[in-house]
């Protein structure tokens, strides 16, 4: 049984008749890294949001199994407790919400769900320092309000830092590489690589093959207009970079 099985997933926006995902199939197991590429507006973030439990999307057909369990039955926080983590494409700034307080609560909620003991203040801070190092995030940033006044790169690193803190089984990275300079890109990818493990799966959404030079994927999927039109190994990303999306788009049209 795979960690994640997405079967014929159709998704629309609440109170609008637009279908965004038009039958997505995807199977991902622990220990694997899958990359999703695709042009703007093809539905990549929508897939990520549906996996994380956003309520504004309505699943009209198909199913999502997580560890064999119906994921769509669960609230966003229940998914987090069971090990689903989404690194946001646009991390939200929350002025006045202390990073430390929020994260300690989140870590302990997830730990409790896993049947682990609550982390005391001292152990928590130790873990913060250790995991912040993983992505070269200054521990000072963790003393501020969530993402408030963070630079673009700091926000993205903060997402990976939280990933490291929460130790999910399924980590979804939505364009974590976008807008990063080369140093930050390396820091983020190094962090992700250190977090790869046999009992964790990654779904990495990106526009650029260059990220996949750092985070080498086991599988690459191309999403166009709400469907996965082509899957392959890491070489698919290279081909895409050379030939552009028109190539898969034409192929998909020819097949239809």
């Amino acid at each position: 049984m795979a960690l994640l099985e997405v079967k014929n997933l159709h998704v629309s926006v609440e109170d609008e008749d637009i279908e965004i995902l038009k039958g997505v199939d995807l199977t991902l197991d622990t220990g694997e890294v899958h990359a999703i590429m695709g042009p703007n507006g093809s539905g990549k973030s929508t897939l990520a949001a549906v996996l994380a439990g956003r309520e504004e999307y309505v699943v009209t057909q198909g199913e999502i199994l997580y560890d064999g369990e119906d994921l769509l039955e669960l609230e966003a926080e229940e998914r987090a407790e069971k090990g689903v983590f989404l690194a946001f494409q646009y991390p939200v700034e929350l002025p006045g919400v202390s990073m430390t307080n929020f994260l300690r609560e989140a870590v302990n909620a997830v730990r409790e769900a896993r049947g682990e003991e609550e982390l005391g203040a001292g152990d928590f801070l130790k873990l913060v320092r250790e995991r912040a190092k993983l992505v070269d995030l200054s521990a000072d940033l963790t003393k501020r309000s969530v993402n408030e006044g963070f630079s673009g790169g700091e926000k993205k690193r903060n997402e990976i830092f939280q990933l490291a803190m929460l130790e999910p089984r399924l980590a979804i990275l939505d364009e974590t590489d976008s807008g990063l300079d080369i140093d930050a890109l390396r820091q983020v990818s190094d962090g992700v690589n250190k977090l790869r493990s046999d009992d964790r799966g990654f779904l990495v959404i990106t526009h650029y093959q260059r990220l996949l030079d750092y985070i080498v994927p086991d599988h690459v999927h191309v999403m166009v207009d709400g469907r996965v039109v082509r899957s392959g190994d890491k070489n698919l990303a290279v081909q895409l970079e050379e030939k552009g999306y028109e190539w898969v788009r034409e192929e998909a049209a020819a097949a239809a």
């Binding site: 439990g53 926080e77 946001f88 006045g96 929020f102």
Partner: peptide
Amino acid sequence: YLRSRGLSEKRARILMLQA
């Protein structure tokens, strides 16, 4: 955002109001 990190909806709303 807060719920996706494991906070209940109620806790998320309380934190936002406190903020």
